[in-house]
Simulated scan of single mutants.
Amino acid sequence: MDMEGVWREMEKLVKENLVRDIGVCNFSLKKMNKLLGLAEIMPSVCQFEMHPGWRNDKMLEFCKNNSIHVTAYSPLGSSEGGRDLIHDETVERVAKKVNKSPGQVLVRWGMQRGTSVIPKSSNPERIKENIKVFDWQLPDDDFQALCNIPQQKRVLDGEELFVNKNQGPFTSG
């Protein structure tokens, strides 16, 4: 991938006032460091998988330290990916305690980490439920309990699409 060439084209879009901001998705720390070393216009957002079962703390901290906003996808985990956090015992316990749904707890957790959260659902009732997270907060002890879920595993590893096992500057195999 010609990262610099692609980024320069994106920067042109900003300079020509065709877009206000540019960002990246699914970048590793190595790729982010490379990008920040060549960017004239810094990325405003980085989107990646994040939930209590895959906190991605290092990437979140890196983005915060570089004033890059984080958008978290798959905040509920995924039954298809083998990590359905809706039924995690810690999530269920917190949900019961705060009288919210597990989905609301997971969305709120991401928001309290300072990220935007984009849950996916095709169920109209869940979509309505997931939006009702702005007028309450998780208590600190419950937030920390979610931050301490021990098993950390990605739901969507994207290996077929994103893993470069060949030679090159960004091999990840």
Rank of each mutant, 00 (worst) to 15 (best):
K96H: 13
G23C: 01
S44L: 06
P75H: 03
L106K: 03
G114Q: 11
E11R: 03
V14S: 04
G23L: 05
M111Y: 04
M3E: 13
R113N: 13
K15W: 15
W7G: 08
M111K: 10
K31R: 15
E4T: 08
R113L: 14
E9I: 15
V45D: 07
E9S: 15
M42C: 14
L76Y: 03
F48V: 02
R113W: 09
K58E: 08
F62T: 02
L29Y: 05
V91T: 04
N123P: 13
M32I: 04
S28H: 06
Q112K: 01
Q47D: 05
L13I: 05
K97C: 12
A95I: 08
L76H: 05
N65M: 09
V19F: 07
N66V: 10
A39R: 04
C63Q: 04
K34W: 08
K12F: 02
V14W: 03
L35C: 05
E49H: 02
L85R: 08
R83L: 12
M10G: 10
W109M: 02
K120Q: 07
D57S: 15
V19T: 11
N66E: 12
S122L: 15
G37A: 05
D57Y: 14
M59L: 14
E80Q: 11
V98Q: 11
S101A: 08
P52K: 14
G37K: 09
V19S: 09
K34E: 14
K100P: 08
E16I: 07
T90K: 11
I41D: 04
E4I: 06
V91Y: 02
L35K: 02
E49C: 06
